[in-house]
């Protein structure tokens, strides 16, 4: 099985750092202030991927359902923190709602994929569950971040229209329906775009992995990558929908007026 895996030596790894350094130098010259986050990101990528390599070996060997659920919940926690970072105005609520939406949509879609579609033995096999859930989470996280950000900016820019509707007796939902629609569209657009151009512009991450590992492209392109693409689309849609629908009410006071922090 390992025969097809492309070996990367430490020297080659070090060479790839040069690519980051080139970008860093340009950034420093233009004072874009990207050097620090780039370097920090590089260090984190190296450390996190090295450590997760060890952790995964351990987790795959134990293959315990409870442990897998705990690990994936932790992944959701990190993802939701990242997703709501762009919308500081909503405070703790956004974090909580972000976590809840991500967790629910990820587990709903991921479990369906594991139990009904891939059905490995056992159905929760860590070797398959962790990468699958990871792919779902990574995409949902970005979708949710975009939706939330757009919801805030739409409501802020349309505040006088929203208040006008409220003063005619609109319910909160009636007054922000257009903003909610825009927010969902913003969150879903990258996923819909990637459904449209998959294979033409980019290959799904897991297909790339299989091909680099030596698999035949014809086998690698079907049917698992199709399942993965669709499951990602479903999870992003459910996640964004849940978050935005739970969230829009937080923009209002209990008197159904716009809250002061909007």
């Amino acid at each position: 099985m390992d025969a097809g895996v492309i070996p990367i030596s430490n020297t080659q790894l070090a060479l790839s750092v040069i690519l980051v350094l080139i970008t860093g130098v340009i950034s420093a010259a233009l004072r874009l202030e990207l050097l620090k986050p780039l370097l920090w990101g590089t260090v984190r990528t190296y450390l996190q991927l090295t450590l997760i390599g060890y952790a995964l070996t351990y987790i795959f060997n134990i293959n315990n359902l409870i442990l897998i659920i705990v690990i994936i919940s932790l992944m959701c926690l990190v993802a939701s923190r990242t997703a709501v970072r762009g919308s500081p105005r909503a405070g703790r609520y956004s974090m909580l709602l972000g976590f809840f939406s991500l967790w629910t949509s990820t587990f709903l879609v991921g479990t369906i994929v594991m139990v009904l579609i891939i059905s490995p033995e056992p159905w929760y096999s860590a070797r398959i569950a962790i990468p699958i859930f990871g792919m779902i989470l990574g995409n949902s996280m970005n979708g949710i971040a975009l939706s939330l950000e757009r919801l805030f900016s739409e409501v802020k820019s349309k505040i006088s229209e929203i208040e006008a509707l409220l003063s005619f007796g609109a319910s909160p939902w009636e007054s922000v329906r257009d903003c909610v629609k825009e927010a969902l569209r913003a969150g879903m657009t990258p996923t819909i775009n990637s459904l449209m151009v998959v294979g033409l512009v980019s290959l799904p991450g897991m297909m790339t992995g299989q091909i680099l590992a030596g698999a035949d492209p014809q086998q690698a392109s079907r049917p698992l990558p199709v399942v993965v693409m669709l499951m990602i689309a479903a999870a992003v849609a459910i996640g964004c929908l849940m978050l935005v629908l739970l969230y829009y009410k937080k923009l209002f006071t209990k008197e159904d007026a716009i809250a002061h922090y909007v």
Binding site: S160, E163, A164, S167, F168, G169, A170, S171, D256, A257
Partner: peptide
């Protein structure tokens, strides 16, 4: 309800919204 109240007591802002 706030909705019924606002439909009876109708506020028009100084710079009203144009849709």
């Amino acid at each position: 309800t706030p909705q019924l109240w606002r439909s009876k007591i109708n506020y028009l802002a100084q710079k009203p919204a144009v849709f």
